Amino acid sequence: MIRLGKACKNIRSIVHVSTAFSHATLSRRGTDIAEAFYDTPIAPKLLIEMSENIESNILHDMTPSILKDWPNTYTFTKAVAEEIVRTMGAHLPICVVRPGI
């Protein structure tokens, strides 16, 4: 999506749909989640490389230590996707929407 956006000469906007829970980590319970980007515990590129090169049973065993503060893989991967949007789409007209359930 980001690569396509960069190739468009007259792009007006890109809307990335995330979730209100992408940064609802255990340590942030009871706090406000700002309309901002947050750091992720692992670089997206590293996570992609791991998923492509490490056997699935080993990845399964590693998952709890990778997730750390996130309650599940869904919210974790949504946070990582936001990091990809932030870094790769830095000079594009991007809006991240975080709807609730």
Rank of each mutant, 00 (worst) to 15 (best):
I84G: 00
L46Q: 13
R28W: 08
H23N: 13
F37N: 07
E83K: 05
T25N: 07
D69H: 07
P93A: 00
C8T: 08
V80S: 01
G30W: 02
N53S: 15
I84V: 13
G89N: 05
M1K: 04
E52V: 01
D32K: 15
A20L: 09
H60R: 15
H16M: 06
T25D: 08
I2T: 06
K6G: 11
N72M: 07
I94E: 01
P44L: 03
R98T: 05
S13V: 00
R3A: 11
K9Y: 06
S18H: 04
I101L: 12
T87Y: 00
G5Y: 02
T75Y: 01
A34N: 12
M62F: 15
G100H: 10
A43T: 05
R86G: 00
R28M: 13
K45V: 10
T19N: 07
H60F: 14
A34W: 06
I14W: 03
S13W: 03
I94S: 01
V80W: 01
S51L: 07
W70L: 07
G89M: 04
I14G: 02
I14H: 03
N72I: 07
I48K: 12
A7H: 13
H16D: 08
C8M: 11
R28V: 06
K45G: 03
H60P: 01
T63F: 02
G30F: 02
A20I: 08
M50N: 08
C95F: 02
A34C: 11
C95Q: 02
T19P: 04
T40D: 00
G100S: 15
K45A: 13
I94C: 04
P41N: 13
A24M: 14
L59Q: 10
C95S: 03
A7P: 04
K78I: 02
T75Q: 02
E55F: 06
H91T: 15
K68M: 14
V96R: 03
H60S: 14
M62V: 08
A90T: 12
I66W: 05
V97M: 08
K9V: 08
I48A: 11
P93D: 00
I101R: 05
S51C: 15
L59P: 04
F21A: 11
P64E: 09
P93L: 00
K45M: 04
T25I: 09
H16F: 15
P71N: 12
A81R: 03
E52R: 15
M62A: 12
Y74K: 07
A34K: 15
N57E: 15
Y38F: 11
I11Y: 10
A20Q: 06
I84S: 00
T77G: 08
T73W: 13
A7D: 14
E83P: 00
V96Y: 03
P64Y: 09
I42E: 11
T31I: 01
P64Q: 11
I33E: 05
C8I: 11
I48W: 09
R12I: 09
Y74G: 08
P41V: 02
A79E: 01
D32N: 15
V17Q: 09
A81Y: 02
P93K: 00
H23C: 07
I48L: 12
A7G: 11
L26W: 06
H16S: 10
A90G: 14
F76L: 06
P44S: 03
P41G: 03
K45Y: 02
G5V: 01
A24K: 12
G89A: 07
